[in-house]
Design a protein around this nucleic acid. Structure first.
Lengths: 154, 154
DNA sequence: CGCATTTTGTTATGAGTACTAATTATTTCA
DNA sequence: TGAAATAATTAGTACTCATAACAAAATGCG
């Protein structure tokens, strides 16, 4: 396959984006897609998607959490979280334990296998995150995060 | 529906995200989702999706462009662009004209209706963009764009 | 020129993600 | 106790994104 950068005739570099290229929203999307693609490939060896990693991280941080709580903080709809947990449970990474006070809910926790895999995945994630931070250049992380959080609260 | 912020018992604010909240990638995603949601609702009156607007903007900037070129700059796969143009053409907003030198391709241009609708949509878009820029706070747009572009080039 | 290769747009199709409505079991509360 | 709310689930849907294969036309090289 021939990359656009080395094609002969059309020379797409000259095509105007109609002002889109100086728009925060548009570039924000390009950046987000790139970050997710990079992280996804970094997690490939562990057969984890980005969402899987985030779920595992939250469970690790607070074992005993219920599905609803995880969905809330990660902005995952409850029905969607069900299948995610289903898969992680089927792989023996996560356990659906009983909640003493509530027989409807499950107390989620990592199995030893889940904990072990997560440790590996965390190293890959840290490596990925380093790349992202390097790309920030002179812009310090704190100001970037603050700005992004304000945008997220639109 | 009850918002999480005003629910009584669980108090999700205390749930740890396991370090995710200080990750550029995660917050980047939240920001991007928020921006798209805001822009989508701003474009609702014109029955345009975000992608539709970007396509119209590119065509306006360079009339006579072929589908392939638009897909390249906007990162839209050719098959997907076909249906997008189909819809815009069916609504009378875009015209598929002949390319003198190439009978396979179409020279895309805006109709008068398309031009008129785009002008309105651009005002809505400008209003939305103003909100995003305000959210940047002390961070100047140029540095933000530069950082995002470097991330997008990961 | 003539024939293989490439390119444009198209169709069909599948994977992945995300959303809504409705159901069951359980808990909460008036 | 009975009504309403909640946790998880199921089923169905919609939207985005990607790939493969195709016809028509253009390109290019012998």
């Amino acid at each position: 396959m021939i990359d656009a950068a080395e094609r002969k005739e059309p020379m797409d570099e000259g095509v105007s984006l109609g002002g889109l290229e100086t728009t925060v929203g548009f570039v924000l999307r390009l950046a987000q897609v790139a970050v997710f693609k990079d992280l996804l490939s970094a997690l490939k060896p562990f057969d984890l998607r980005v969402t899987d990693l985030s779920v595992l991280l939250v469970i690790e941080a607070t074992p005993g959490l219920q599905q609803r709580a995880i969905g809330d903080v990660l902005r995952i709809q409850r029905p969607n979280l069900v299948t995610i947990i289903d898969q992680l449970e089927a792989r023996g990474l996560v356990r659906r334990g009983p909640v003493p006070a509530d027989r409807r809910a499950y107390a989620l926790s990592l199995t030893v296998e889940g904990e072990a895999l997560l440790q590996q995945a965390k190293r890959a994630h840290a490596q990925h995150d380093r790349k992202v931070l390097d790309a920030l250049g002179d812009l310090d992380k704190e100001r970037m995060l603050a700005a992004l959080e304000r945008i997220a609260a639109l």
